[in-house]
Amino acid sequence: MHGRGPGIASACLGLALAALLATSSPTLGQSASDKDSDGPFTGLAIITDDLKWYKLFESPKTPVLSVKDVFGPNERGALALIFSNAQPRNGVVKIECDVTAFDPRGKKLIVDDGACYDGPFYGENILVPALLDLQFETSKEDPAGRAGFTVTMHDVHSGRKVKLTVAYELEAGK
């Protein structure tokens, strides 16, 4: 896990959501990006090849992540988890996550009620990167097909939950 400093971008949620999800497909689990809301609480999951994606949030500019939906053998990627409008308590927000990885061989729970974020509240409609840094690497032994992650983000203080599914095409090794 990587720590993030207080340099969180103060990007407007509407503009940032549009920029982040410009290439997404509306079919759940068929896209490398997904978003869901439960009341004001919003979660985003994005598969990217930018292993330092969270650094984009250290700038005052609206973050734009590269979304990657096809990975060949021996490529690295990351699961970017982002949220907005979590309910603060005493100026602090707490998010927990369940993350399950899946591929053509099956699925495996990799994070169970894990801490995704426990830190300061930066304001309404501010996109905040989760502190959970999940990276993966493909190999030539991986079977071809759909792979990805299902994520449940839980705003501990409000009790709200969002469910996200992101997937990418895993190309066969050569």
Rank of each mutant, 00 (worst) to 15 (best):
A9P: 01
G39P: 04
L134Q: 14
K174Q: 06
Y117W: 14
S37K: 15
D98A: 05
A32P: 15
G14R: 12
T62S: 07
F102W: 10
Y117P: 02
L13I: 12
V166L: 10
K107I: 05
Y117K: 07
A78Q: 10
I82F: 02
S31W: 01
P40Q: 15
K68S: 05
S37H: 08
R105T: 15
G123I: 12
D98V: 03
S59N: 14
G145R: 03
G145I: 06
C97G: 11
P63V: 08
C12P: 01
V93H: 02
G77N: 03
A86Y: 01
P143H: 06
G72D: 09
K35C: 09
S25A: 05
S25V: 04
L127P: 09
L51M: 15
L81G: 01
P26C: 09
G145D: 05
G72H: 08
T42R: 02
N125Q: 11
D103G: 07
T150A: 11
L13G: 11
D133E: 09
A45W: 00
A167S: 10
T100D: 12
V67R: 06
R146N: 03
A18Y: 04
L65S: 04
R89S: 14
G43Y: 01
L164S: 09
S158F: 04
M153R: 10
G43W: 02
P40G: 09
P60H: 15
D98E: 10
T48A: 00
R146A: 07
K163Y: 14
G5T: 14
A147G: 13
M1G: 07
E75W: 11
S25C: 04
G39E: 14
N125A: 12
R4C: 01
P104T: 04
T27Q: 15
G72K: 10
I46V: 13
N125H: 06
G3N: 12
D34S: 12
N85P: 11
T23G: 14
L132G: 02
V162Q: 05
Q135S: 13
H2A: 13
K52W: 11
E96P: 00
R4F: 08
K52G: 09
E137I: 01
E75K: 14
K161R: 12
Y122T: 03
G159P: 05
V92M: 15
P26S: 08
S25H: 01
W53C: 03
C97Y: 14
E171C: 07
L51Q: 11
R89P: 00
F71W: 04
A11T: 06
S59I: 11
F57A: 09
G39W: 09
K35E: 13
R76M: 07
I46A: 02
A9Q: 03
L131C: 04
K161T: 01
K108P: 00
I47A: 03
A19N: 13
D50Q: 10
R89W: 06
G14S: 12
L109G: 05
K35P: 00
F83Q: 04
S139M: 09
W53L: 05
L20E: 05
D113G: 15
D69C: 02
L20D: 05
V111I: 12
K140H: 12
D36E: 13
A167N: 00
L164E: 04
R105A: 11
S84G: 07
V64D: 03
D133R: 10
L79G: 02
A172W: 00
L20T: 09
T138Q: 08
E169N: 06
A45V: 11
F149H: 02
I46M: 05
R76S: 14
H154V: 13
L170N: 06
P129G: 05
G7E: 03
L65Y: 04
H154T: 15
D118K: 15
